[in-house]
Design a protein around this nucleic acid. Sequence first.
DNA 1: TAATATATATGTCATTGACATATATATTAA
DNA 2: TTAATATATATGTCAATGACATATATATTA
Lengths: 132, 132
Amino acid sequence: MGAGGKKRGDILEDVGVYMREGPGKRFIEPRLLFLLRSAPAHGYELIRRMEEVPLPGPLPDTGAVYRALRRMEEEGLVSSRWADAAAGPRRKVYRITPRGRRRLQVWAEAIRGRVMLLQRFLELCSSGEERG
Amino acid sequence: MGAGGKKRGDILEDVGVYMREGPGKRFIEPRLLFLLRSAPAHGYELIRRMEEVPLPGPLPDTGAVYRALRRMEEEGLVSSRWADAAAGPRRKVYRITPRGRRRLQVWAEAIRGRVMLLQRFLELCSSGEERG
DNA sequence: TAATATATATGTCATTGACATATATATTAA
DNA sequence: TTAATATATATGTCAATGACATATATATTA
């Protein structure tokens, strides 16, 4: 449509992208942003608290979580610092950034769109039943 | 938990499986079952009508559609027969089976569960906003 | 005979994430 | 001292999925 198309930054905040989830994407990113939105946390804790997040899909594997956190840090959605633990090995504590908060809002918007679509689907499904 | 666990047939109709969608799965199967539920159709027609289905995700690629139809026939969700066209090459016309209708109902149930989860997520997101 | 629309199908490849394993620290039990 | 366990982060490897490109074939139109 418009001359030149979208710039990179626009695409990154494009609701459509998050509605689609990209190829094969689970909800790992919104899960992590959701948990970090209220308080910083390290990976292990995020993994333990993962089931608190009401999103569909299986709980992501630990490897996927750590890799997602590093990718999200590269993208500027979270920042991290090493911290000593009262006991056990050091922890890498992640904190959500303003960009991460914006991304979570984009996810929420996309999910609102999903819900509307899915509800239309369900309506059409049940209206078309009328006996087997 | 229960002795023996689930039998194969049970797993195939387990709502949880469809709520998760499996790794990387789009909504190709429910899209096709939804379109076929009202009338038989051949692959090319299903591809053209794909955007009628209110489900999230990009419209599936033609290759994915034909492969999905064949896989679904193996699974007994659809049956097919070759038919002459008024013009152009022969068509493989797919028809939904009783098993396919049941599968679509399982999908609908799973999607109802998804919607409930997603709505809880949205509520928690907006209740936790309280200013940027 | 060339191009286009219709129609089905396969080849190939990158992405994703599941599963397994590696590495390291601290605590507790033997 | 050693072994086992909980905590904590990270990498290796592989199968599944589907995106993109292409192949094959028929019929119509230019």
